[in-house]
Simulated assay, not measured.
Amino acid sequence: MKMIKVAIVDDHKILTEGLESLITESGIAIVVGVAHSAAECRLSLGFWKPDVLLLDVGLPDISGLDFCKEIKEEFPVIKVLALTTHSEYTVVRQMLDNGASGYLIKNAMAEEVLAGIKAVAAGETFLCHEIDLLMKRPSEKNIWLSPRERELLRLISEGFTNTEIADQIFLSPETIRGYRKNLLLKLGAKNTAVLVKIAVEQKLI
C-alpha cells in the first residue's frame, strides 16, 4: 500500500509533534514536512509535494482561509485538510469554498484524524462528526460570544483602536488583534465596518 505523504502547517509545536507521532505510527502515512507559519510552508511546499496538507485556520502570519485558496491555486493536486479550533459555520463554509477537502476540530479523536487523511487522499470530502452535525443544522443560528468578546465588540463599535482597547481592558495589543481576528471569523465579516453592522443587526451590542 502506497504511503500517504502528509505535511502539517500549525504554529503550535506541541500539537505538530503529537500529530507527527500519530501519523508516523499509523502505518498509513508519513510526515514529509512541518511548518509553523504560511511563510515557512511556502518555502518548502514545492519540495515536500505532500498528498495531504493539514492546515490550521489561525496561522500567525496569514489567515488559513486565504492560505488554503493560495495553495489550491498553486498546487491543485494537494488535498487540504483543515485542522483548527474554529467550529463556526461561516469559517467551515469559507474553508470548503476556498478548496479544502476536509475539516477537523483539534479535539477530534486520533481515529478521526487518520480517517480524514485517508478520505481526502482518496479524493473524498471529510468532515469530523462535530462539523458534520453543524453543517446539517439550519443556517439561521445564534452566534454565541463570550463576555470578553462582547466587551471587545462594544469597544470596537465605539471606534477605539487596538492599542486603546488594550489599555482599557489590560491586555496586550497583540492579544486584542487576535480577538478582533476571531470576531471577524465568527461573524463572517470582511472588515471592521461589516463587523459592527452585523453586531448591531444581531443585537450583540
Rank of each mutant, 00 (worst) to 15 (best):
V9T: 10
K13G: 11
S21E: 15
E25F: 14
I28T: 12
I28Q: 10
A29K: 03
V31D: 04
V34H: 01
E40Q: 12
D56T: 02
S63C: 03
S63A: 07
S63T: 10
D66N: 13
F67K: 02
C68L: 03
K72D: 02
E73L: 15
A82I: 15
T90L: 15
T90Q: 15
V92C: 10
V92E: 09
R93L: 14
L96V: 14
S101V: 11
I105P: 11
A108P: 11
E112T: 08
I117H: 06
K118W: 09
A119W: 09
A119K: 12
A122N: 13
T125R: 14
C128M: 04
H129C: 09
M135T: 03
K136Y: 07
K136R: 14
P138V: 11
E140F: 14
K141D: 11
W144K: 15
W144D: 14
W144T: 15
L145I: 07
L145H: 08
E149L: 10
R150F: 10
E151I: 10
L155N: 04
I156H: 04
G159C: 10
D167K: 13
S172N: 04
P173I: 06
P173M: 04
E174K: 13
E174D: 14
T175H: 06
L183G: 01
L184F: 03
L185S: 01
L185I: 00
K186Q: 06
L187T: 00
L195D: 00
V196L: 02
K197M: 00
K203S: 11
